[in-house]
Write a protein that binds this DNA or RNA. Structure first.
Length: 588
RNA sequence: GGGGUCGUAGUUCAGUUGGUUAGAACGCCGGCCUGUCACGCCGGAGGUCGCGAGUUCGAGUCUCGUCGGCCCCGCCA
């Protein structure tokens, strides 16, 4: 570097430094060659500074400046000059000054990049991912990663301040039967055996409680081999927390404090405590276990209104134990036939058999259902659901949970379509009292809704044998703006109860012993009551930067088909590598 | 596993009912230019229309298959 040392960054020079001799290093953002005079914009992570190559600059400087192009890395030595008043650029932090180059050194030449790096230039997602290191030079991505870093630092700062120890747990661990599909790692030493990458450090953090650590946390990578979404990557980061001698409310206040502290670090204010909704309430009112509370449009039950109407479809649904429910779309009475058809298509895609509607315009109430229900009953239904003149009523009938999720889905769709969601707003909510178990028709058995170590609600302990579906758990999710940001529970700390749960899940004693024997044994050595939570750090960061995809906050993410466009993984390995692992590939 | 949508110059896109030589902007290259900051002006190069079959006298355009991006359902204890 010519013996030069960088004296300043490209974001800090101003009127105060005028007259100083400085050395800047960075990437050439733009070259503006006006003939006798040339301007370079030099960029580093802190900002951009204009470099002046004037007629009085030496021949060396001028010749070098002629050669350089976009994204070359250069060092510039020169004097900070105050710009004439008409030349000040108010839109740039360093716009009051420029640096007259007395020396310029090319540190690295650069090929013309495959896309322009200016903010605001649209580039396809796959190109950005293939050249991620260039994409990350762009200001929005850099800002996002900086914010993510601050959030992580604030989380550690807060938790350590609360007396937590950050403790690492293994990545090469044991495959467990319940839950998401595992990523497997073959063992070379023990051919035919596999490690699994952790879906979460669940068992280890409970063992740390048994070990007496009392307050553990870890910002840790987790792996799940399931299909991806905008908010789901195969590897993702959790803020994993576990505490001993606590109740759910201790977790609530800890996590509320954590969110307030983290978000304050990037100048976002949120208020705590967060409201709470029981699971069944969330489903009935919002049709989701991760309700978006930034807008209303709650679900209403019309069973009382339509019962006895004589309308065959509704009557038979009600007789069969189903429900007739509705949402009111405020101000949407003007929807066209086509709009309504589109909504019906959505409803069917969400699992509805059909979609009933009624539009209450100034003059009249229009609905294909009026013929069956009568105008009075129709109007009553409208009012029961909280609607009136100018509104649209959407009715779904069927099995309870299906109907809820359909209306919940329509609710979200309407909110997006009608712009009911105010950007920048944060609506947190705790969803509590999740069911302990859910039944799988296809497998003919019960599964844990959270995980098999979740404590049943003490009041429901006796129902485990008689009515497993009615057992509530001490599990909770923290939800913001319709995203599940975390979930946790109070754990079972009694090996008898744990065995009972394994039995309810259809695990034989032998299976339980084979898969979790070490853990069942550990529970017998003096286990403190304990519980915890795992927060989705990527999702928190995504919401905090105003993003819509985890790719916005992950430096090197995977595509929706779990490919890494940059490295080309996953990829073939040599037959020698396979031999060493004792693995033979099947033809697929 | 399923549904939707996209794939044309380095990039972002346009391309009519299937019809002559596939266009624009930005970028890139060359020239001119002493106050630009989206610099300006003049000129130029640049295309396996993702890939493979098929229909047709003729395919960027139609059909089938396939690969890939994005969004969604299933799945994600």
């Amino acid at each position: 570097m010519n013996g030069w040392r960088r004296t300043h960054t490209c974001g800090e020079l101003g009127a105060e430094e005028v007259g100083q001799s400085v050395v800047l290093m960075g990437w050439v953002d733009v070259v503006r060659d006006l003939g006798g005079i040339t301007f370079l914009e030099l960029r580093d992570r802190m900002g951009v500074t204009q470099i002046l190559i004037s007629p009085s600059s030496g021949a060396d400087v001028k010749n070098t400046a002629k050669r350089v192009g976009s994204e070359w890395v250069v060092a510039v030595k020169g004097e900070v000059l105050r710009r004439a008043e008409d030349n000040v650029n108010k839109s740039v932090a360093t716009g009051e000054i420029e640096v007259r180059a007395d020396g310029i050194e090319v540190l690295s030449e650069a090929k013309t990049p495959p896309f322009e790096l200016n903010e605001g230039v649209k580039v396809s997602e796959d190109l950005r991912l293939r050249y991620r290191y260039l994409d990350l030079r762009r200001a929005p991505m850099r800002r996002n990663l900086e914010k993510r870093s601050k959030l992580g630092f604030a989380a550690r700062e807060y938790l350590v301040g609360q007396g937590f120890n950050e403790i690492e747990t293994p990545f090469l661990t044991k495959s467990t039967p319940e839950g998401a599909r595992d990523y497997l790692v073959p063992s070379r030493v023990h051919k035919g055996s596999f490690y699994a990458l952790p879906q979460s450090p669940q068992i280890f953090k409970q063992l740390l409680m048994i070990a007496g650590m009392e307050r553990y946390f870890q910002i840790v990578r987790c792996f799940r081999d399931e299909d991806l979404r905008a908010d789901r990557q195969p590897e993702f980061t959790q803020i994993d927390i576990e505490m001993s001698f606590i109740e759910p409310r201790d977790i609530y206040s800890l996590v509320e404090g954590l969110f307030v502290h983290m978000l304050r670090a990037i100048d976002i204010d949120v208020s705590a405590p967060f409201p709470k909704l029981r699971y069944d309430e969330a489903i009935d009112r919002y049709g989701s276990d991760k309700p978006d509370l930034r807008f209303g449009c709650e679900i209403s039950d019309l069973g009382g209104v339509v019962r006895g109407s004589g309308y065959g479809i509704f009557e038979s649904v009600l007789e069969g134990g189903g429900v007739v429910r509705a949402i009111v779309a405020k101000g949407c009475a003007g929807y066209s036939r086509k709009d309504l058809d589109n909504l019906e298509v959505s409803a069917k895609a969400l699992g509805a058999k059909g979609l009933g509607w009624a539009r209450w315009t100034d003059s009249e109430l229009k609905s294909p259902l009026a013929r069956h229900l009568g105008d009075d009953r129709m109007k009553q239904a409208f009012e029961t659901a909280g609607g009136g003149v100018g509104d649209l009523l959407l009715i779904v009938a069927g099995e309870r949970s299906r109907t809820s999720s359909v209306l919940g889905g329509l609710r979200i769709e309407l909110a997006k379509r009608e712009g009911w969601i105010r950007e920048g707003e944060w609506k947190f909510v705790w969803v509590t009292e999740f069911p302990l178990l859910e039944y799988s028709e296809s497998d003919g058995r019960w599964y844990s809704m959270h995980h098999p170590f979740t404590s049943p609600h003490p009041e429901d302990m006796d129902l485990i044998d008689t009515d497993p579906g009615a057992v509530r758990s001490l599990a909770y999710d923290v939800v913001a703006n319709g995203y599940e940001l975390g979930g946790g529970s109070i754990r079972i700390h009694n090996s008898g109860v744990q065995e009972k749960i394994f039995k309810a899940l259809g695990l034989s004693d032998e299976e339980a012993k084979e898969k979790f024997g070490f853990f069942l044994e550990a529970l017998q050595y003096g286990t403190p009551p304990h519980g915890g939570i795992a927060l989705g750090f990527d999702r928190i960061a995504m919401l905090a930067v105003g993003g819509t995809s985890l790719r916005d906050v992950i430096a090197f993410p995977k595509t929706t088909s779990a490919l890494d466009m940059m490295t080309g993984s996953p990829s073939d390995v040599t037959s020698a590598q396979l031999d060493e692992l004792g693995i033979a590939l099947k033809k697929v």
